[in-house]
Nucleic acid binder design. Structure first.
Lengths: 352, 352
DNA sequence: CTGAAAGCGCTAACAG
DNA sequence: CTGTTAGCGCTTTCAG
């Protein structure tokens, strides 16, 4: 206390925060130098057991919490991974982000989250601030980005992983699957169930390029596969919701009276379609077969249970984490191993 | 040493990253001092138009991206808000986090995300690393935390907001609603529909304290309201999924043969219950009335449409953001305004 | 194995 | 309005 009054140099001009316990304080108490504390924190084994014990004690009595901001600055790369997804409300991305976050947290990496809302300009802004953190890696969704985004990222030298899509030229690395192939699988499945008048029901396909690619893969496969097959793509401009699914089915029925098979861009849409069929007394799968995409929570339990394509958002999260961690440990994947295909699985249930 | 200083001083010992463009570089090109650049970046109006233009030009030609890590260190508080939720897979929290992220991003704040998976120890660990970022605020879910978490947070001096629950003593500030009251509303509603043998179907209530509180509010209201009312609480130890809902309904029917009303801890459970009723040919709402919680995407569109209690995860996100931003702008709410009740709304639909 | 020294890139008084 | 001056708390050579 008296030190305080005698000379003011330890008194903050503005006590904005409770005087933070620093590594210096720990070092003093443990009677070692700050750099030893730093070393202990990063490689405990490199410090003598005696010193280590002292340091550990000091840390706990002082309640020391390392300042990662300072660490990040000194180390020139912070323990942060920036993830940008269209929307976390989308169960697909929620799953991936959740897994990714867990995997990275286990290695002491933090996740910074941003939502592009399917906008390339928004994404670019997010990338810009993401880069401000000197992140250990940046994770983006999909392969479509503005040229500004691409440049920014390339100039930064930060590892970039694009997820949930492969089949184009990634900026750096990519983990995902081919969306046209998903569409094709859906079409093939419907065709194999004797579908002759089929439709793809999608939402927000102006912005959701991946959904649009599933649709075109679907259409192409339908065209290729058989002569007397009618195939339509129907888009709902709003979000992919259950309600949109009901709307879309109604529209499909209007456009294609003898509709006998639909593929939905998302299980929510499929569920909406299922409900609409139920309301109209249309039998699924006898009159119309339904295949979804996503294998969401309810898909196995709804009535009838939903045939769907599972993209494994989980696996994507795991693989992205693996790539990031490898990068941090100095192993930079090269060549083909920079693109990982997590594939997709068609899960057949009662709706087809 | 001298060799070093004579000509090598601009060469990094280790070219770990593409030489980052710093504020210094911008200053040089714009022929002003670094602090002027810094000032310009924070308050453009405080710099002369001429200098401002030069700086702006320099920034764009150099492609300068400010380093927030350095800024955070210098300013002793980073532009980061740490959010800890049980799981982002849960649509409730996804909604709140999404809104919160958008609101904060608009003010230049980043969101760091962590998942406690309903574990207090995990939460404590997350809080510890969150604090390492000297965040502008920490956002937690619920009012139940380990004493360690509480202490850590209190000692840090960082603004803390607990969300999705009020009714206890918050660490600092709270935004949410009363869960017992939600349970009570559900019970009252069921009772008003002539329910006499009612049950609360919940999941993971050992860990999900808020769900447990909804259950007890439900049971108490039932007890208080009428004499000849039977009320049971049934818990599924696993996650709150559609499948769990089907299971729970089956168990409820076993335990209470004359069951005529159920309240579900979550709309997913309610949907599962609805499906199970359909499978068993039980009419909803005639034989059993169903009320959910969450007003999820499908709740308005399912068959029958689901009566549910809407907690407004959106509004919670907005209010949390408001509180955080107020704090940053120096207005620290005091007294009762530190606790915000966002309430709940019962949305009556066909299932009751 | 430990410590001293030199910054990381930026902000924030303060003085000009 | 602009520049100077100190650090923020930590990491990282490099010597001892």
């Amino acid at each position: 206390m008296e030190a305080d009054s005698s000379l003011q140099d330890r008194v903050p001009r503005k006590r904005r925060k409770m005087q933070r316990v620093t590594m210096m304080d720990v070092a003093k108490l443990a009677q070692v130098s700050p750099s030893t504390v730093s070393l202990y924190l990063r490689k405990p084994a490199a410090v003598s057991p005696a010193a280590g014990q002292e340091i550990a004690r000091a840390i706990s009595t002082l309640g020391y919490v390392p300042n990662l901001v300072a660490g990040g600055l000194a180390a020139a790369s912070s323990k942060v991974v920036s993830i940008i997804v269209p929307s976390i409300r989308n169960a697909f991305f929620a799953e991936t982000v959740s897994t990714l976050q867990a995997e990275l947290a286990a290695e002491g990496l933090q996740v910074i989250l941003g939502h592009s809302e399917y906008g390339e300009d928004q994404e670019e802004a997010l990338v810009r601030t993401a880069l401000s953190w000197a992140p250990a890696a940046v994770v983006l969704t999909g392969l479509s980005h503005s040229t500004g985004t691409r440049k920014l990222l390339q100039a930064s030298g930060v590892p970039v992983i694009e997820m949930w899509e492969i089949g184009g030229k990634p900026i750096d690395m990519a983990v995902g699957f081919s969306h046209p192939q998903v569409g094709a699988s859906a079409a093939r499945h419907l065709l194999s169930k004797e579908g002759r008048s089929i439709a793809f029901l999608g939402a927000r396909m102006q912005e959701d390029h991946r959904a649009a690619k599933r649709a075109s893969g679907f259409a192409e496969e339908a065209k290729r596969a058989a002569e007397h097959v009618t195939c339509e793509i129907i888009n709902h401009p709003g979000a992919a919701t259950v309600e949109a699914g009901s709307l879309l089915l109604s529209r499909a029925l209007q456009q294609i009276p003898d509709l006998d098979g639909i593929a939905c861009s998302n299980d929510l849409i499929a569920l909406g379609a299922l409900f609409e069929c139920q309301r109209r007394g249309i039998d699924v799968p006898d009159r119309i077969a339904v295949v979804g995409f996503g294998d969401l929570d309810f898909s196995a339990s709804c009535i009838p249970s939903l045939t769907t394509i599972r993209p494994s958002g989980d696996l994507i999260g795991k693989e992205v984490a693996r790539l990031i961690l490898a990068g941090i440990h100095g192993e930079h994947p090269t060549g083909a191993s920079r693109i990982i295909d997590t594939g997709h699985v068609l899960v057949e249930r009662r709706s087809t």
